[in-house]
Computed example of a mutant assay.
Amino acid sequence: MKSAVIITVYKRYKYIDEALNSVLSQTVKPDQIIIVADNPKMLNNSINATVIEADYPQLGKKMFDAIKALRDDIDIVYFLEDDDMFHKNKIEYINKIFEKRRDIVTVHNSRKLVDENGIDLNYELDKIPFEIEIRKDNIVQIIRENYFLLSNNSSLSIRKDTLKKIKNYIAQIDISVDLVIIYFSLVFGKLLHIPEKLTYFRVGSGSSTIGNTHSSDEFNERKGKIVCTFNRTVNDLLKIYSMLPDCESCKKIIKRDLLYLYLYLSAENNFVNCDYKVKVPSLVRIFVLTLDYYLKNIISTKDLYNVTKGVLAQLILGKKKVSEMRSKKGY
């Protein structure tokens, strides 16, 4: 099977050589490499790749442009963010899965977490130590028990024909491309999660993880980036919810995600400057939604407890105090 790797880079070239080397050193080389970058002049000109200039932050639009550039003979598409890396036999291993399992449209592999210097953090984020087939009828239970299991673009690979079907949906998304791929994979087929750690996921180098910080100011700066990312994520989730044609279980997960994000942003949006902020429901509205979702079996008893506790904390202690307590605990 012929494979392609789509690499996205935006205003961050510190790790791009490591990312590219991890692709070029694969035991089975990809048949096409597509790099979408805001400044192609920062790339190594000697690499045989299709380069697309994209000086804008919307990841969905970048992916859409890259998908249009895929060769006709490509079968499987891999994704790699500029600060992540592939294990040397990732493409060989996953291509064989796609060859054997024609019913699988997407594969998600486990990740090894590394710090900004590429050193193993020895922390298990993906806690399912076995291969598991994910379908519309079991995804809710799987995500409830393993919340962070299916995140990260660099751990996803998909059949090109499925990717082509969803490219117009991807184009409408800001940053949450991985969620579009996951949920629409369940619309068109099955997703397979494998426990092999075939991706090195770098913590603390982007806008979704804090990583190691050396001062409270540095911690608060990174926390601010995460708050702004969460605002964009909420907007994406609302779009994905409206676009999904037939996956009620997926919509259940989205509702749960929105509930937690609303609760978090209800406090944090008051103290962080972001270019974009969503309209967050009132705490009373969040509590009413929580009760409604619990009665409809959208969220678990644990979720009911967590969100109710969070709402009461903000009502009793105040939003500023809750934000400060979160920062103190996180730092």
Results as ranks from 00 to 15, higher is better:
Ser3Asp: 00
Ser3Trp: 06
Val5Thr: 03
Tyr15Ala: 01
Ile16Arg: 02
Ala19Pro: 10
Asp31Cys: 02
Ile35Ser: 02
Ile35Thr: 00
Ala37Cys: 08
Met42Tyr: 12
Ile47Cys: 03
Val51Leu: 02
Phe64Pro: 02
Ala69Phe: 08
Arg71Phe: 10
Asp73Phe: 05
His87Ser: 14
Ile94Pro: 10
Ile94Glu: 06
Asp103Met: 01
Thr106Leu: 12
Ser110Gly: 08
Leu113Arg: 00
Glu116Gln: 12
Asn122Arg: 13
Glu124Tyr: 11
Lys127Ile: 05
Ile132His: 06
Asn153Trp: 02
Ser155Ile: 11
Ile166Phe: 02
Gln172Gly: 11
Ser176Gly: 05
Val177Arg: 00
Ile182Ser: 12
Lys190Val: 00
Tyr200Arg: 10
Arg202Ser: 04
Gly206Cys: 12
Ser208Gln: 08
His214Val: 13
Glu218Pro: 15
Phe219Ser: 15
Phe219Lys: 15
Lys225Arg: 05
Thr229Val: 11
Thr229Lys: 10
Asn235Trp: 07
Lys239Tyr: 06
Met243Thr: 08
Glu248Leu: 07
Ser249Cys: 09
Ser249Arg: 05
Cys250Asp: 07
Lys255Tyr: 12
Leu258Asp: 05
Leu263Val: 11
Tyr264Asp: 06
Leu265His: 01
Ala267Ile: 08
Glu268Phe: 10
Arg285His: 07
Leu289Phe: 10
Ser300Asn: 03
Thr301Phe: 15
Leu304Gln: 07
Leu304Phe: 11
Leu312Lys: 12
Ile316Thr: 13
